[in-house]
Design a protein around this nucleic acid. Structure first.
Length: 521
RNA sequence: GGCAGGGUAGCUCAGGUGGUUAGAGCACGGCACUCAUAAUGCCGGGGUCGUGGGUUCGAGUCCCACCCCUGCUACCA
């Protein structure tokens, strides 16, 4: 690969539980973008990983009676197993307990201390602490002496000495960033929220915690506690987790700039502000290049409840993947949930979409085309001129590509909608041209060639276009068609001119078997 | 409480700057066809466009009020 570099990341997942639907949606979406960019000829590096420090991890491990490292090791295995099952094509898996990450974080903090010495300072912090939020609250978040989000609880006045990062200093810088680079934070709804946040003013961030043992020790000694046993604070999540995108490149080792800056951070909409405000300020303080773009995707709900919340949702990720397999699951999530907004998951919808679009639509189309090539042309695709189908597919495939090349953001649901139209068009094309009738008239043999070859080309294009979404099924289809190499390795640039003459078609098992009929009375 | 977005067929949603009978997909009903995973194609039924006012020759599309939903409201992704 020699193309333009494309460094894509997802949020690192907090190692305090099992992978759930929300994690899966993000990884699948990022994986599709990564795979698609490979087919666009980019030099892709796809990073995912785990956030493994913090109080909750330490507490959970303690409750289980095991060391935190042992605990996160087990969690990391569970996540990687899930990503392998779902076919996530990541190039690198970073963990914040990796030694290179920990040393990279220290180097990054020291770099800021050198480049922007006034940006770190110690302060005795005190304020109203909401036990519900587990946060200090600002005055404008307090109404009637109660937290607006937890009005039934009393606030507690709490004190702690911490290191702070002078985020307020970067307010002007960040405002210009968001105004001058409208693509920096997308989609538009997220950008509006960030603009509102910037307009309301920024406060400095506390970036360490006392008595936090399961963390990277903050590398700057406290001037106030010099002596035989200086107090060492634990580095709080901001400076531990966010720099993973940077330390993954090998920072501070020479050569990290071969990969940095990141092209695209895919994150949940709940943490877009961290990536669009805090992270750029940190990088600017270190005088390092900023990422090109942050994309805040939406959330998945189930019967009105968040998947990410621990309570109530009684639906298993592994069960849903097993229902029709990983590829169909990937397809459904991205088809059903707009990648720039929220959506809800329902088993009924999954079954409906699978049956109508994958089994009856694409699967049956492949079945009827391969059957006709075998029956009428002994399995060999005949040479033939282009048909109306080829030209008409072009617009949809272009739309599918433009929906995820970044020019309009990353609208994966729109891309799948466009590809689905090519499936519908091919089924209609068969009905209109009636190849079975052409086959009965020897004088119409050339006409039949045109129809059959066009259908194989259409399916081949669909296999290539769908390879990012359903990698296994796309290859299964490609193999049945007798295409060269793999569908996933076929560049989008070659789609329009794709030929299939001479391919050896071999009808195989149904791509998407219809679900078993429910037992009726 | 503040800010932002939204409420259109059973379900998911389209509907630039107001203009003939409000559209698509799915689901449902009928017909056609047979290459195919009883799949496909065609036709059809189905909507007081959140509520109430207003502007206009004319409003889903503009204005006002109200109701409801969602998101954001920065320190544990």
């Amino acid at each position: 690969m020699t193309g333009e570099k494309f460094y894509i990341t997802t949020a690192i997942d907090y190692a305090n539980g099992e992978p759930h639907f929300g994690h899966a949606l993000e990884k699948i979406g990022a994986d599709v973008i990564a795979r698609a960019h490979r087919q666009m000829g980019r030099n892709v590096h796809f990073l995912i990983g785990m956030d493994e420090h913090g109080q909750k991890v330490a507490q959970t491990a303690a409750a289980l009676g095991i060391e935190p490292q042992t605990f996160v090791d087990e969690i990391a295995v569970k996540f990687r197993t899930m990503w392998d099952l779902l076919g996530i094509s990541y190039d690198q898996f970073i963990r914040t307990t990796d030694a290179p990450h920990k040393s990279g974080v220290r180097a990054f903090i020291k770099r800021i201390a050198e480049a922007s010495p006034e940006d770190f300072y110690e302060k005795e912090y005190e304020g109203w602490y909401c036990v519900g939020c587990e946060l200090f609250k600002r005055a404008d978040e307090i109404v009637d002496k109660k937290c607006v989000l937890h009005p039934t609880r009393d606030l507690e006045w709490t004190k702690e000495k911490n290191w702070f990062f002078r985020l307020s200093k970067y307010q002007g810088f960040l405002s210009r960033l968001v105004e001058e680079r409208p693509n920096f934070i997308q989609p538009e709804s997220r950008r509006n929220e960030i603009r509102a946040l910037l307009a309301s003013g920024l406060e400095d961030l506390s970036i360490t915690r006392a008595r936090l043992a399961w963390a990277i020790p903050f590398p700057i000694p406290s001037p106030a506690t010099q002596g035989p046993s200086p107090e060492v604070q634990g580095t709080w999540v901001w400076f531990d987790a966010l720099p993973n995108y940077l330390t993954a490149t090998g920072y501070p080792a020479k050569g990290f700039k071969d990969r940095w800056p990141a092209s695209l951070h895919i994150v949940g909409k709940d943490i877009t502000r961290l990536h669009a405000v805090v992270w750029p300020a940190m990088l600017q303080a270190a005088e390092l290049p900023l990422p090109e773009r942050v994309w805040g995707h939406g959330f998945l709900s189930f019967g009105g409840e968040r998947f990410s919340k621990s309570a109530g949702v009684k639906i298993s990720l592994t069960d849903e993947i097993a229902r029709f397999g990983p590829d169909a699951f990937r397809y459904f999530l991205l088809r059903e949930i707009p990648f720039d907004g929220d959506g809800s998951y329902s088993v009924e919808r999954f079954e409906a979409v699978y049956t109508s679009e994958l089994a009856n639509g694409l699967g049956n189309l492949a079945s009827r085309v391969t059957a006709m090539i075998e029956k009428y042309r002994a399995g060999v695709v005949p040479p033939a001129a282009a048909a109306s189908l080829d030209a008409e597919d072009g617009a949809d495939l272009a739309a599918a590509q433009s929906a995820l090349d970044g020019s309009r953001g990353y609208l994966l649901h729109e891309a799948l909608d466009a590809i689905a139209r090519t499936t519908t068009r091919a089924n209609l094309f068969i009905q209109t041209s009636q190849p079975w009738a052409l086959a009965k008239d020897p004088a119409k043999s050339a006409e039949l060639d045109v129809v059959l070859a066009a259908l194989v080309r259409s399916l081949a294009r669909q296999a290539v276009a769908l390879a990012a979404y359903m990698p296994n099924k796309a290859e299964a289809l490609w193999t049945q068609l007798g295409g060269p190499g793999t569908a996933g390795a076929m560049p989008y640039a070659q789609l329009a001119a794709l030929q299939a003459t001479g391919w050896q078609v071999k009808k195989g098992d149904g791509l998407f078997p219809r679900p078993a009929e429910p037992a009726s009375i």
